[in-house]
């Protein structure tokens, strides 16, 4: 800056370092881009780690025996790995769970969105979120130590471990998921449809059952599918309350072992890496991953295909 009688040249006060700003931005974009790629790497990592060990597993146990055997006896001298045994158990608990969660969750969503006064709603929603946030190990405790003894009061031949109690509690644990996703779907229905229903002489229930729920159907079905997928992959409740007995049965009163419970059982033991039992948890994990992936894709596809476009 030169000293002169005239005021200083204003441009000398401005020294934007545009090059540096651009450089900083470029570095930031690269770092953040790498962070975004972590999610892609996670998917890749999941698929790779499941696949490699699953392939090793199938080198010893032929895949068709895995899919068709009706026994799960990894500790026998002549071990059999019939995934149907674990799958039926997983399926059974999930079915029980969704038959609790669908009515409870859907009716809760209807109450919250259509009936609850705004003041009450402000309290009910966080309360349901607390229910959603209860760790599953706590639900497991509840199922094993309170619900099962309670049910044994009515069903004397109910086992200490059983699919019924695990499934019921699992259902309660996924109810908030069904409720909140269904409520979102109900909210997305334009108010004009509700008004249209009332203008035809509908009562409130008729407007809800006849117009609002059918209009929200794609979202409700999607919430239901996602809830089933969550129930299939849930671990602690079924491990604690449903037992560790690989039974091929759909009887909800006896102990069973789900896919997730098997993975926990092997993980808790001292199974050497590379042994066939160790490899088997990856094969079971792969099966579970594929099943839940199919459910998720189906739910995604369902919403895409059946969502009504309202202008």
């Amino acid at each position: 800056m030169t000293i002169s009688s005239s005021p200083p040249d204003p441009s000398s006060l401005w020294k934007p370092n545009r090059k540096a700003s651009k450089y900083v931005q470029r570095v930031v974009v690269w770092i953040f881009g790498a962070f975004a790629l972590v999610s892609v790497a996670t998917t890749f990592g999941i698929i790779m780690s499941l696949m490699l060990e699953t392939i090793n597993f199938f080198k010893t146990v032929p895949i068709w025996r895995f899919l068709t055997d009706t026994q799960w006896t990894p500790l026998f001298s002549n071990p059999q790995y019939g995934i149907l045994v674990l799958f039926s158990a997983t399926f059974l608990t999930a079915i029980i769970a969704i038959s609790v969660a669908l009515p409870l969750g859907l009716f809760s969503a209807i109450y919250l969105s259509e009936y609850a006064p705004p003041q009450l709603r402000k309290w009910l929603k966080p309360a349901l979120e607390i229910l959603a946030g209860v760790p599953t190990v706590v639900f497991g405790y509840f199922a094993l130590l309170l619900v099962t003894p309670f049910l044994q009061f009515f069903i004397p031949n109910l086992g200490g471990f059983n699919a019924l109690s695990a499934g019921l509690v699992l259902g309660v644990s996924i109810t908030p998921l069904v409720a909140s996703l269904s409520e979102d779907a109900i909210y997305a229905v334009p108010e004009s449809l509700q008004k249209g229903a009332y203008a035809l002489g509908c009562t409130k229930r008729e407007a809800i059952v006849g117009v609002i729920l059918p209009s929200a159907l794609s979202g409700i079905v999607a919430s239901c599918i996602l809830a089933i997928s969550r129930a299939l992959g849930e671990t602690m409740i079924v491990t604690l309350a449903a037992g560790q007995n690989p039974n091929l049965t759909l009887n909800p009163l006896v102990p069973i072992m789900t896919m997730t419970a098997y993975i926990v059982q092997v993980s808790l033991g001292d199974t050497p890496a590379g042994s066939i039992a160790f490899l088997s948890i990856f094969a079971v994990g792969m099966t579970l991953f594929i099943i839940t992936l199919i459910f998720n894709i189906f739910s995604f596809w369902f919403v895409r295909t059946f969502r009504e476009k309202y202008e």
Partner: peptide, 10 residues
């Protein structure tokens, strides 16, 4: 009643 915006049910 008929509304401002057509609102056929889906």
């Amino acid at each position: 009643m008929v509304f401002q915006k057509p609102n056929p049910f889906p």
